[in-house]
């Protein structure tokens, strides 16, 4: 078996991490694919860019190909709203997790303050998801 060519080693702990992007809500479609809360784990810039590119590629190909897949049970619009509710619930849980870090991790004073603010917004985010879910109604009622 031929040997693999030498490759550039990935960044190390002292190198700059992959930045978390500032998302312009008007261009949210440029950020479909993986969640930022998932990509944040990949601080190695090459790995981060690869996954970001993969997510974008899969999403773009799916847009072209989805005509061959099953039709959404209650239509595309309601289907998208349900997806937004699911992602809101995910973020609600994520913020609640950051809120618990004051007890589960050793944080600086400022980190503790930010953690408290995260907890403060959990009910607000829950209210947003609840409102959308209430407006949506149960599955099947929208047909």
């Amino acid at each position: 078996m031929p040997s693999l060519p030498d490759r550039t080693p990935p960044s190390g702990p002292d190198d700059p991490p992959a930045p978390i992007p500032t998302i312009d809500p008007d261009r949210f479609e440029d950020f479909e694919g993986f969640r930022e809360t998932t990509l944040a784990v990949f601080t190695e810039p090459g790995a981060n860019a690869t996954l970001r590119g993969l997510g974008d590629l899969l999403y773009t190909m799916a847009l072209e190909y989805c005509q061959h897949w099953p039709v959404e049970l209650d239509g595309a619009f309601y289907h998208q709203v349900r997806a937004a509710v699911a992602d809101l619930r995910h973020l609600e849980g994520y913020l609640a997790h950051l809120d618990t870090q004051r007890e589960e991790a050793s944080l600086s004073d400022h980190e503790e303050r930010v953690s408290e603010v995260c907890g403060k917004f959990v009910p607000d985010l829950r209210a947003v998801a609840d409102a959308l879910e209430t407006a949506l109604g149960p599955m099947g009622a929208t047909r």
Partner: peptide
Amino acid sequence: PRHQLRAAVADLHFLQGFLGML
């Protein structure tokens, strides 16, 4: 923690845009 929260903020802006699209 700050890194994680910055990611959450990015995802919130994403959802802001998605809801705006809807």
